[in-house]
């Protein structure tokens, strides 16, 4: 099986609950689950498009869910969609995710929204809706594109 070079691994207090709410909200599919002798989750992977994400417990003193550290996040996972982002947002809302920013068109040509899952992980979701030139992006944002604008 072809693997992407980078994979995010997220920690949850209740990783099994996360498997359910991530499937309900985003349509992620469980592709691997390993349980130990006590029936506790040891390792899990979910697939989405050509990527996967690992879902685990707070497996060491230094691994925490946002739910255990006052809601702070130290990284977020971004979902790239080639589909109806507004419908995606409604599905996440229906699954109990808090919508922090409703779907909105961005200067760089994507429509995006931002949400928070039941344990406090932030997720950003974006779908391309039009292509934007460097000149237009710089003019509308006031930023300077240094490198890497397709």
């Amino acid at each position: 099986m072809q693997r992407a070079a980078l994979t995010s691994a997220l920690c949850y207090r209740d990783a099994k609950a996360a498997l359910n709410f991530l499937e309900a909200a985003f349509g992620f599919e469980l592709t691997m689950l390993i349980e130990d002798n006590d029936g506790k989750l040891a390792h899990a992977e979910m697939g989405f498009g050509d990527s996967l994400i690992m879902i685990g417990n707070e497996w060491s003193q230094m691994h925490k869910s946002p739910a255990s550290i006052d809601g702070f996040n130290t990284q977020t996972v971004h979902i790239h969609l080639d589909a109806d982002i507004d419908a995606h947002c409604e599905r996440a809302r229906a699954a109990g995710f808090e919508i922090l920013m409703e779907p909105e068109d961005q200067f760089y040509g994507d429509r995006t929204y931002r949400c928070r899952d039941p344990e406090g992980h932030f997720w950003t979701v974006g779908a391309p809706i039009r292509s934007v030139s460097v000149d237009e992006a710089e003019a509308t944002s006031g930023l300077k594109v240094v490198k890497g604008w397709a």
Partner: peptide, 11 residues
């Protein structure tokens, strides 16, 4: 029965 592995794939 505990201590299990689960693997899924679309075909």
């Amino acid at each position: 029965m505990t201590s299990k592995v689960l693997v899924a794939l679309r075909i």
